[in-house]
Design a protein around this nucleic acid. Structure first.
Length: 620
RNA sequence: UGGGGCGUAGCCAAGUGGUAAGGCAACGGGUUUUGGUCCCGUCAUUCCGGAGGUUCGAAUCCUUCCGCCCCAGCCA
């Protein structure tokens, strides 16, 4: 009876080292702020808009924000930045929560900042100022309360109050211009804009109009609330930007309570402030928004320390696209089977494919964080996936493209078992038994009737080792009379080599894997290649889009693969190394006991494939 | 060419005036019952985007030039 592998979908984590060595510019800033006394604790935040699934680029941001919180003993708030009801959906908030939790599990889960379900900012008096404050809580501090992520939409009331305050201070006004007019009047980067005709309307009038906007008296687009800054500023984001717009739309979290919604620039800095965020880390494209971020906070005369925005370069990875718009397009146009298709760079896709969270984290740590534009090679990510799985994944034998092998001198009907190690990297993972018999399957790639140069595997007259079993020598082949294809290989075994070692010390050049034909479990195996054939799918000819470089061979589904018996009951999500082939993960959607479905997570490195490539032969 | 950023190896990335870390990739070798893992070695010989300058000394400071990215949503 073959022993079952002791594989779990997400086994205990390896210890990861805390901050050491060099510091990036963000950690340096945090350190200085701590040293100077500007702040005495660190609170970061990860603020996705729930309008798509998280991807590897978000993973970088998560590792950064949670990593900093973790290193400085602070926390990182998970916040839904949901200020645009027309684009957001609860499906996305659910997936975001699951993805974040999975990614930080066992590493920074104690830094995850949440809030009690239903909590909203507390209005209080602080030194004569009205203040809104919603501190996050960590799960450990919740004393049993149910927690949920923070939502920007829970701050709509305070945000509205802050907007009123801006109007009273003459720093904002209600504008009646149409979107088209506002466009025309914005000017150009090298040409000043033109002031709104409503810019100097009385404060009371703006106040009244803004209240009526909220009350729903006007249709979409009839009015906006605008900051009163400077239409001549060379930074176009300071040219009286829109702060609020009217949107008669139902919101996934506040339903129909509001018909005016704050714009990102107005909302985000105040969301950060309300939560007591100390460092607001975002991507480079927001750098030009920073003066506006600071302007709004400073215009409000707020009693607590202000958050600081700093920007880093977003991640790009070769052979993939990263924008939510494009990922959504891949899903909607059916180029993939869903957001969690194992070919997708989404967190859920990578999880389903079998990428361990710690591999993704190790990758994010290794790529570092800086401000220069970058395109990281996929091979680096794959390196960390292999590195993690090599230590963790139990080995097993599986034949993907079966070729029948008959051991002519092995008694018909006889069966024996060999004990073999589950992981040569980790003796504690134990051993298992694999059954052997006269008829086996070997990999088609492991036999060549006429071996090319440097081919070490089986061919007529050549002796190889069947892993953990016997040395065998190929004696003959059987061919299909029609096609001439080899349909069966005949061989003899040396009974003295039981276990795989020859008593006379003779060596063989190759060890190949095998599965006993009568004991084999049939399986479907899905082989993945990059979704795109171009390193940069966005780099296509004029008039074409990134889908032009879609890889037609990104998914190859193999039926009738032959697995060793212990794999028949693989737990969905469990990852194995199929020896000599790669790492494979039992699919969490489609795999069932007795009819397993495996995804190839990543290939093993393959020196022979390189040789073949040089020779101009070989399989994709 | 208004404003804001960024240029260190094929790809990331340290370096913050004292003589160019590290990882991936690539290449060569050793070990090996996985052509895997592991180990050893090679990989920026005053070319750190270019040119000048300051200095005993410059990737680091100054000047100038070049290149790339971002910004004119009532998206985030």
């Amino acid at each position: 009876m073959p022993a079952k592998h002791d594989a779990t979908p997400d086994p205990p984590l390896n210890q990861e080292r805390p901050a050491q060595g060099h510091q990036d510019f963000l950690r340096e800033m945090v350190q200085q702020d701590l040293a100077s006394g500007r702040i005495d604790n660190v609170v970061t935040r990860f603020p996705p808009e729930p309008n798509g699934y998280l991807h590897i680029g978000h993973a970088k941001s998560i590792c950064l924000n949670f990593g900093i919180a973790r290193e400085f003993g602070g926390r990182c708030n998970l916040r839904m930045d949901d200020t645009n009801p027309t684009k957001e959906d609860v499906e996305y908030v659910d997936s975001i929560i699951a993805d974040v939790r999975w990614l930080i599990a066992g590493w920074a889960d104690e830094c995850l900042g949440l809030k009690p379900v239903g909590a909203s900012p507390e209005k209080r008096d602080l030194g004569g100022h009205t203040d809104y404050y919603l501190p996050s809580m960590m799960a450990a501090d919740s004393s049993g309360q149910a927690l949920e992520p923070l939502y920007a939409s829970d701050y709509f009331e305070p945000l509205y109050e802050y907007a009123l305050e801006l109007i009273r201070g003459g720093r904002a006004f209600v504008c009646d211009h149409s979107p088209e007019e506002v466009d025309l009047m914005r000017g150009a980067p090298d040409r000043p804009g033109q002031e709104s005709a409503y810019r100097n309307r009385p404060v009371e009038e703006s106040l009244d109009l803004f209240r009526r906007m909220r009350a729903g008296e006007f249709p979409d687009g009839a009015h906006t609330l605008r900051a009163r800054i400077d239409m001549g500023n060379p930074n176009v984001w300071l040219r009286d930007p829109v702060l609020y717009r009217i949107r008669h739309a139902s919101h996934h979290h506040t339903s129909d309570e509001w018909c005016i919604y704050p714009m990102y620039d107005f909302a985000h800095c105040l969301e950060d402030y309300i939560e007591g965020i100390t460092h607001s880390i975002c991507t480079l494209e927001f750098e030009v928004h920073r003066p506006l971020y600071d302007w709004i906070l400073e215009a409000l005369d707020l009693p607590r320390p202000l958050p600081r925005q700093r920007e880093f370069a977003r991640l790009n990875v070769t052979y993939t696209v990263m924008s939510k718009r494009k990922l959504l397009q891949l899903v909607q146009e059916g180029h993939v089977r869903g957001w969690d298709d194992p070919r997708m760079p989404t967190v859920s896709g990578m999880r389903r494919r079998g990428y361990p969270a710690q591999a993704i984290r190790a990758f994010c740590e290794r790529i570092g964080v800086a401000k220069r534009e970058n395109m990281v090679e996929l091979s680096l990510l794959e390196h960390f996936v292999r590195d993690e799985l090599n230590r963790r994944a139990p080995r097993a034998m599986a034949v993907l493209r079966p070729l029948r092998l008959v051991i002519e001198n092995y008694p018909e009907g006889q069966t024996e078992e060999f004990e073999t190690v589950n992981n040569p990297e980790d003796a504690s993972m134990g051993t298992r038994r694999v059954p052997f018999s006269r008829e086996l399957y070997i990999e088609q790639d492991d036999f060549r009737e006429v071996p090319p140069p440097k081919y070490h595997r089986l061919s007529p007259g050549v002796e190889v080792r069947l892993r953990s079993a016997y040395l065998i020598t190929c004696t003959d082949v059987v061919k299909d009379p029609q096609t001439g294809d080899v349909t069966e290989v005949r061989a003899t075994y040396d009974p003295a080599t039981r276990g795989g070692d020859a008593p006379d010390g003779r060596k063989v050049k190759s060890t190949i894997h095998w599965v006993s034909a009568s004991h084999a479990v049939d399986a479907e195996v899905r082989l993945y290649d990059t979704l795109f054939t171009a390193e940069n799918p966005d780099d296509v000819a004029e008039g074409r889009d990134f889908t032009a470089t879609l890889n037609p061979g990104s998914l190859e589904t193999l039926q009738g693969c032959k697995l060793e018996p212990s794999l028949g009951t693989a737990v969905p999500g469990a990852t194995y190394q199929f020896e000599r082939l790669g790492y494979f993960c039992a699919d969490t959607e489609d795999s069932v006991a007795g009819a397993p479905v495996f995804n190839r997570t990543v290939r093993l490195k393959d020196a022979w494939a390189k040789i073949q490539k040089r020779q101009g032969t070989g399989r994709r």
